[in-house]
């Protein structure tokens, strides 16, 4: 591995190949993701970033005709083995999607549902405490404090996305996957989320897909660049942007930064 080895490895992808039906989407992927760090996946559209991300919590199980070979280890255990409990896995590896997707329920219910479903019947005070803490962690609490009982769909796009992040935090995941969380948002909401991600990495491991290289350089510790289903370069952020090794990465960086 090229990049520095401080911090223990939480997810380790080995020799991963993936197909949608006949179409190959990922080939020979090897990557390690370090605990309490932010790893950014970058690369042109259609190169397989989302596909890999969705392998990490097995969301691709929902896609008809999707299959893969190779292995993914979480804390040293395979997440792909037959007897692995997917629900357990998704509880450890949370996800925030590109489009904000709050449920058509109140803000409170959005937050309470995963808590109740995962931890059984929590006392009301405890529930409110969890909700408050996590809304604060997603720096949304002040904005919605007095409207917890109104529909989540009435929030702005940025607020909805932060609600989804807060919601993902309620179940205490170890890793949180973000698929272009800011692509539908304005610059101010984007800044808020970036600040929050920096905060969150104290407690969680973060993997983020982004098209915004500025964003990647601002927040990421490690960068992996994808091209046509392969990882062409992976390095710590400083190294990647100051001294890209491959021609592809150089071109991609210069095209995006010019």
């Amino acid at each position: 591995m090229v990049y520095s080895n401080s911090g223990s490895i939480i997810i380790s992808v080995k020799e991963l190949n993936a197909w949608y039906g006949e179409k190959k989407a990922l080939s020979n992927i090897n990557i390690d993701i370090k605990k309490n760090s932010i790893t950014a996946f970058i690369g042109p559209s259609g190169c397989g970033k989302t596909t890999l991300l969705r392998c990490l919590n097995r969301m691709n199980d929902l896609v008809d005709g999707f299959r893969l070979t190779g292995d993914i280890l979480l804390d040293g255990e395979s997440i792909l083995s037959k007897n692995r409990d997917v629900i357990e896995l998704r509880r450890k590896v949370g996800m925030v999607f590109q489009q904000p997707n709050p449920f058509p329920k109140t803000i409170f219910e959005n937050m309470a549902l995963p808590v109740k479903e995962n931890f059984g019947n929590v006392r009301r005070e405890k529930l409110e405490e969890i909700i408050e803490t996590n809304l604060k962690a997603a720096s949304l609490y002040e904005e919605v404090e007095d409207r917890l009982d109104s529909s989540a769909l009435r929030l702005s796009g940025g607020q909805q996305q932060r609600l989804c992040i807060a919601r993902a935090l309620t179940i205490n995941p170890e890793v949180i996957l973000f698929d272009e969380p800011c692509s539908a948002l304005d610059p101010i909401s984007t800044m808020k989320i970036e600040d929050m991600l920096m905060e969150l990495k104290q407690k969680y491991t973060i993997v983020i897909v982004t098209h915004n290289l500025h964003q990647a350089s601002r927040i990421a510790d490690e960068v992996a660049m994808f091209y046509e289903g392969q990882i062409v370069e992976q390095a710590s952020t400083d190294v990647f942007f100051s001294n890209p090794k491959t021609q592809l990465a150089q071109d991609y960086i210069s095209s995006k930064f010019s």
Binding site: M59, L62, I87, E88, R90, F103, P114, N118, C164, T170
Partner: peptide
């Protein structure tokens, strides 16, 4: 549906 499954339901 995806949101819910990703939340461990």
């Amino acid at each position: 549906k995806e949101a819910s499954l990703a939340l461990g339901l």
